[in-house]
Amino acid sequence: MDVAFIIETIIKIVVILLVFSALAGLGTYFERKVLAFMQRRLGPMHVGPFGLLQVAADGIKLFTKEDIIPQNVVKPIFKIAPVITAATAFMAAAAIPFWPQFTVMGYTVHPIVADINVGILYVLGVMAIGLYGPLLGGMASANKWSLISAARSAAIFISYEVITGLSLLAPLMMVGSLSLIDINNYQAGGITHWIVWSQPVAFILFWIAAFAETGRTPFHLVANDHEIIDGFGTEYSGMRWGLFFIGEYANMFFISFVIAIIFLGGFGDGSIAGAFQLLLKVAFFFFFFLWTRAAWPDVRPDQLMWLCWKVLMPIAVINIVITGIVMMF
């Protein structure tokens, strides 16, 4: 383990942290603007040109606001819950290849922090821990709305995880590897080799599960907007509340990367064009999250569980069986 490797890894970690923290902040701006245009409003307009500095204003507000810890909460867990959401979102990013490898001044850079050979399992597993943030925050808050919100987050968790795993199994059977780089190289032959053509059902199922995983509308049950208050976040203020949002938006970006790499060819053959295509695909999936939020209402927790267990899970299992039969003969 030489020094160059350690320095390179640390630089990669810092770059990913900075880029995606900034993107998470900008994500809130995109979300407001997209929602505003779809609802025939203007969105943020007053701070800076087109309201662009709204992000900075929000940041200053969150950082300088008093960090209130209410009296009856379970203090250590209340304090650590937002950190879990934000930290696990970024930890999951360690196994995602963001770009193809490129050479700078004779030095080949792999834009992935750790190329472990079970990449996709690691990403999904660590991302799933992120839901512990809302759960613990809600349970530690000593507030009934927060507690109900925590119960909903547990319900979401036990519903969607089965779908994520089962829907991914069929494409993984075809590729024969769990590494995201191998999955990407399997589709390197161009648009006709994309897994989405051979596994459309798995693609739709995984996409639906991604909405539950990131807790976005129509599965935005964790912080139920209809209750006016903010579910698990009711008792939070300042940066602790902001950390939940950084985690949520970073997760949206990372899951968009994962969908694009597994089903839509990722960065293709590794050329510059392929790299920019990957960014375009990620941008589309991120936009789709916002589009859905503008267009659809939330479902109830029992509807989500009904959907996941009684509709999506049988479809996923049938998909696996058919894939297996086709692969055998």
Binding site: I116, L121, G125, E161
Partner: peptide
Amino acid sequence: ADFLGAIQII
């Protein structure tokens, strides 16, 4: 044992 580690988490 990366596989077992990831499975342990999940």
